[in-house]
Amino acid sequence: MKTSTKGFRLPYLLTLPITLVIIALVIYPSVYIFYLSFQSSVAGVKNLAFVGLKNFVQVFSSSVFLISVKNTFIFALGSVGISFVLGLGIAYLLDNIEKGKSFFRIGFILPLAVAPVVAGLTWNMMLNPLYGIINYLLKFVGIEGLQWATHTDTALLTVMLIEVWQWNPFVMLIIYAGFQVLPKEPLEAAMIDGASSWQSFIYVSLPLLKPAIIIAVIFRLTDAFKSFDVIYTITRGGPGYASTTLVIRAYLEAFQFHVLEHAAVFGIVMLIISLIISKQAIKFLPK
């Protein structure tokens, strides 16, 4: 009798700290941001004045809002898409070699240890159009160098490629783990039936890898969606609005232009998008 009541209370006791943290760091801030988005902070955050939907109208009708939504989706979907193809390819090759597996695996995951700020600064140095090593090496093999982060056409692509470099190891590692636990029988059966290695990869391995792929893609997508460090260190959203994403714009609204209520509107838009993604994501995660 005694243990059963204990068994009832203990889980709630252990859940208490995390519940308090969620209230303080998730629920309270979300409610406050929602409240703030209907106010004007012209007279300071202590003297807020209700302005109705004015902030939403102002933000939604500005061209930079649409550009940042577009850039955020291009950045997130693009970098995760490239990571997915590269990560899957490298994991497949890694699984199919005999010797040196752990050597290659350790080599491939090293970018995970590099702080995104350091990654951003280093790539910025390498991609400098004048004295950077990348354009020099490209010229060596006969390719005309790009302006990279300094040109409106290539700035977003540049920060996407750095994001891919930094986080590709994460995707690769999870899919590689998926390869490790693939059952052997379906692949052998496909071989006996005369399937080529490409066919057995597409029709046998890939469907079996689905859980690993879903985990990798969901986690990358949510992270890429709010990725800040690399864009901030290299372009701060520029040139112009070329690499401005929702996070970058929200940061600039709050800390450069000091219009907190506009930052709040950006925050709410992001909150809604991330809620939609989490609702979908939780269905796929293991219980």
């Binding site: 519940t19 760091l25 309270y28 406050y32 941001i33 800040f228 709050a254 909150l271 993604i277 995660l285």
Partner: peptide
């Protein structure tokens, strides 16, 4: 609670920082 834990990871930083 598990759902909210997942949501901590997805919180847009600006929503947390201002409050």
């Amino acid at each position: 609670v598990a759902f909210f834990v997942l949501s901590t990871r997805m919180m847009p930083p600006i929503v947390v920082i201002i409050p």
